[in-house]
Amino acid sequence: MKKWILLAILALAAWNYSLNQEAEERGEERGLVKEIVQGVRGAVYKRDPRFRCDGRRYCNEMRSRDEAMFFLTHCPETQLDDDNDGQPCELDFPPPNNP
């Protein structure tokens, strides 16, 4: 039994290494640990009464600026901030003017 557990741990470590190498080539941060953390973080925030991570990823699927911000902040694998300035869906929901 211990051999199977050790083998499973080694397989997960190899898979994590592979994910990290592929992500580095694309200039992204990835890996098994990050995927698990994002999944847990998304599960925790699913309890927010207004919004929940439900698989939507794109601006045309959002209903409001607040919803887009929630998805950008808490849900993995979204594509809501093309210019990486922290403001999601700027063309669909322009940021408010700050005087």
Rank of each mutant, 00 (worst) to 15 (best):
F71N: 00
E28Y: 15
E25I: 05
E22W: 06
R57P: 05
R63N: 04
M1R: 10
E77D: 10
F71C: 01
E22Q: 09
D83I: 07
D92C: 10
N98I: 14
Y45S: 02
R47S: 12
E67C: 08
R57N: 04
L19E: 15
R30Q: 04
L32A: 02
C89E: 00
Y58H: 09
P49N: 02
N16R: 04
I36E: 03
P99W: 04
L6H: 12
W15R: 02
Y45W: 14
D81K: 01
N60A: 09
E25P: 01
N97Y: 15
T73E: 13
A8S: 13
I5M: 12
N84E: 12
A8N: 11
C59P: 04
R30C: 07
R50W: 14
P95K: 15
R57I: 06
V40S: 03
E35W: 11
R50S: 12
D54P: 01
R50F: 07
A11S: 11
N20F: 00
D82L: 03
P88C: 06
G31L: 01
Q87V: 15
L7G: 12
D82S: 05
D81Y: 01
N20Q: 08
M62P: 02
M69C: 06
L10K: 09
K2G: 14
S64L: 03
Y17C: 03
E28H: 14
W15S: 00
R30S: 12
I36L: 13
E24V: 03
P95I: 11
Q79H: 11
E29K: 08
Y17I: 02
N97T: 08
Y45D: 07
R41W: 10
Q79A: 05
V33G: 02
D48M: 03
P99K: 04
V33I: 10
L7Q: 10
A68N: 05
R63P: 00
L19S: 04
F51D: 01
K2V: 13
L12N: 09
W4Y: 13
Y45I: 02
L10D: 03
D54V: 11
E35Y: 07
D83M: 04
G42M: 03
D92Q: 15
Q21M: 07
C53W: 08
A8K: 08
V40D: 01
A13G: 03
G31Q: 11
V44Q: 07
E24W: 14
C75W: 00
D66A: 13
E67S: 05
V40F: 15
R57G: 05
I9R: 04
I9G: 07
N20C: 11
A68I: 05
E24L: 14
R41F: 07
E24I: 10
L10Q: 04
G42F: 15
E35K: 05
A68S: 05
V37L: 09
P49G: 02
V37G: 04
D92G: 06
H74F: 15
A8T: 08
D85A: 01
N84P: 02
V37P: 12
W15F: 12
Q79V: 03
V37M: 11
R52S: 12
N60R: 07
F93Q: 01
Y45N: 09
N84M: 13
Y58G: 00
F93I: 15
A11N: 02
K2M: 11
R65S: 09
T78N: 01
C53R: 02
L7R: 14
N98P: 04
V37S: 10
E24P: 00
R57Q: 13
L6N: 11
